[in-house]
Amino acid sequence: MARAVSTRRKTIATIAAWLVALVIFFPILYTVATSFKTEAEAISGISLIPSGTFENYVQVQTQRDYFKPFMNSVVISVGSTVIALLIGIPAAWSMAFSPTKRTKDVLMWMLSTKMMPAVGVLVPLYLMFRDFGLLDTRIGLTVVFTLINLPIVVWMLYTYFREIPGEILEAARMDGASLVGEIVYVLTPMAVPGIASTLLLNIILAWNEAFWSIRLSAANAAPLTAFIASFSSPQGLFWAKLSAASTLAIAPILIMGWFSQRQLVRGLTFGAVK
């Protein structure tokens, strides 16, 4: 009896959950489906079964040079994340393993820089970029994204490093390991998973950032966010092509996101929810 009830309950919950999930996912599914339709099909009613043309993908490349903004996105998001890691790893390391009275204050202060609204510094940043010739350059955007994500990088790494037990270090030291030996042979292997998740989350955040990337770039350095935003002008009213460009723009990040769900919670809540 109890078993029957629980099976029924499971079935109902399953149906409800799948319905809700499909409604939420529908816009993405529909975009992917539309990307394989012809332009005429795209505006002729709901249909999830396209005629299967790849024409839109070809045209997005030949007419709008999709590869260029794609490479800009790759270079800027990966570049800024790697630089932020190079700066952030030593900082988080020293905070986790030789904390002082002020470590907590420094961490909180770093987090507070993240609270600064972008529009609050739009004007000076824009003027500085103009004066230094950084407008519409990959370097300019990489610098901004590095600084924007640095606090999250340090925080995430810190919460991971903090979980590495200090006793292991002492044991290694007893066994005669040098400081370099400690870092290379003991700590690094334990820190790799944390560093990897930090890397992943920050690439996702940088890839999707859509304020600075749109405002500080034009034809040359525009990443995908700015590229897609340019489809809002009338000449871009080609839904099948818009869908193809959109699918290409979100696919890599969607897949990375699926793999990093757990770390996402931790990273975005600064360790407050695990």
Binding site: V20, A21, I24, F25, P27, I28, T31, I204, W207, N208, A210, I214, L224, T225, A226, I228, A229, F231, S232, S246, A249, I250, I253, L254, M256, G257, W258, Q261
Partner: peptide, 11 residues
């Protein structure tokens, strides 16, 4: 369910 979070705002 979590997928929309990874979709960039312009898209």
């Amino acid at each position: 369910v979590i997928s929309p979070f990874f979709v960039m705002p312009p898209v």
